[in-house]
Design a protein around this nucleic acid. Structure first.
Lengths: 299, 299
DNA sequence: GGATTTTACGCATTTCGTAAGTATT
DNA sequence: AATACTTACGAAATGCGTAAAATCC
């Protein structure tokens, strides 16, 4: 047994048990892959793959059990490499952040600016994705850290830290009727609504708030990003329901934001990353910056 | 990086960082060990061992962190091998049980007899040890399963299953004054006491029972096994305090056992084994047999 | 027939062992 | 002086690549 055989099992699993593709991924010829697999199976004494003639079709029950251990080994191996290179130069490496538009534009700017000052050598990659994709990105190791707003399911393989809480706001033109008097769900529902796409930025909290009082919403526009919503509010299309922190008093002087924390339950922004996965010092620092920025926002 | 280098780190740790001894354990010459260590450290870019000249003295902070991952890899590697050989022939292998005398003689007999019927090919090794040593045996992988009576500390690396509960009994000659009337702690304490050594078979529960009523015990004999206690009870040395299940109505017809469950808090016998460590089918079956035998005892 | 896997054989690389050299106690 | 580690070099083992054969769809 050796580490490239362990790696091979992982790659074979990722390539639908195709030896040729696995060979390509591992930068060796396919005959070598074929032989290494035979050697490994012979060493263990039992086949790990179901075969139909020569072609691999899937994994045997034994193979499936062994894949769990294979994942453990590959993860630990990567951790060793990360630990060492981190120790060698903590100012070098990459940081992949997966997040949504709202977080990227209204929350991450400060932490990222401060992070770049401390770790100028670290390359930051930001991937914008829908909330449900964020967690997938973590699991597929495409991203190191995800910043989520929607509910994140309990997952034994994830570390989830609550970052900060926020509430929604209604944005309207300055002269809109809703600028006066107390805001209620019923008053809001009387207007066409512009808000986030389903699954984005606390949209589910908006849904349940109106549902609980039995009021139907007339959603004219569902967007993934706040700027689109504001743009159409300016055109008089209706009332925008956005995340509170996405209202900028400076650039949005022509608009008015009215807090809805008493009507729509507060949402929380969370940080998620893989358990059992060593994060370099700089990544840990970035998480600290996020939590710091979150605390500053509340103050 | 390869698996023998990972194995080497583990062996080096076990041999007090002595390259020569490590080489011997790995059945290769020490020059090979020296070179492999250099290769590995060069690959990672940082030393993993503190050195005083040429001699290794300990591990660097980086080395210590990496040792955690090394342990994970070695464990997973062994699990793969166990899984495969278990799958190949589940009736072959070894089972190391660590336990105390009382359990071995009065509880394990039936489960082991039944186990040998189902898995005649599995070699059973029983190691008798003091309760505190039992857990060490598990951690050092000298034993696969430990059966303990005394309290077992919370340990994130251990799975601990409660097997059965039992209480102590007083054994006395048939004509002893305590054969009549209600038993109390005070009456017991009036006689010389023969019981288990400190740390054995619920001795701590005996201690605390008498301590709670402020009665001092006159312990004439402290033994690790019940037979010694009974022998001296027969000689009239005093009252024996033993585990209830250690009284055998057949062979102990000349003695009398009086239940003490109302005076001394019940003890529980527990099964302990390593988490993240794959146990062969037969080991899992043995645990099932233990739990089964425990249930039968209560019925 | 094109794609995929296996087998055969030579070459390159890795890793070991022997032996000699250097440092440590 | 004895023990422990490193370096040098030749030998064995391992693993890869090329090429051809076998199999699958």
């Amino acid at each position: 047994m050796n580490l490239s055989q362990i790696e091979l099992l992982r790659v074979l699993h990722e390539t639908d048990f195709n030896l040729s593709k696995a060979a390509e991924k591992m930068h060796i010829v396919q005959s070598a892959v074929s032989r290494q697999l035979q050697l490994f199976e012979n060493e263990l004494g039992s086949p790990l793959f179901e075969r139909k003639g020569k072609k691999l079709q899937g994994m045997t029950p034994l193979g499936l059990k062994i894949m769990e251990e294979v994942a453990v080994i590959n993860r630990a191996k990567k951790n060793i490499q990360t630990l060492a290179s981190d120790y060698l130069d903590s100012n070098q490496g990459t940081l992949h952040i997966a997040t949504t538009h709202t977080q990227a534009k209204y929350f991450l700017t400060t932490p990222i600016r401060r992070f770049k000052e401390k770790y100028p050598g670290v390359k930051i990659y930001m991937v914008q994705a829908s909330p449900e994709q964020l967690i997938d990105q973590i699991h597929s190791r495409t991203a190191d850290i995800a910043i989520c707003t929607e509910k994140v399911d309990e997952d034994a393989n994830l570390v989830i830290k609550t970052c900060y809480e926020w509430s929604h706001a209604a944005v309207i033109p300055q002269d809109h009727p809703l600028s006066q008097g107390e805001i209620t769900l019923e008053r809001l529902a009387a207007y066409p609504i512009l808000t986030y796409s389903f699954g984005f930025t606390g949209r589910s909290n908006i849904e349940s708030a109106f549902k609980s009082v039995g009021v139907d919403l007339d959603i004219t526009l569902a967007a993934t990003d706040t700027d689109v919503i504001k743009t159409y509010v300016r055109l008089g299309m209706g009332v925008g329901l956005i995340a509170g922190m996405a209202f900028d008093p400076l650039t949005d002087q022509d608009l008015l934001a009215r807090d809805l924390s008493h009507l729509i339950s507060r949402s929380s922004t969370k940080i998620a990353y893989l358990k059992h996965n060593y994060l370099p010092q700089y990544s840990q620092h970035f998480i600290d910056e996020l939590l710091l920025a979150a605390r500053d926002m509340h103050a």
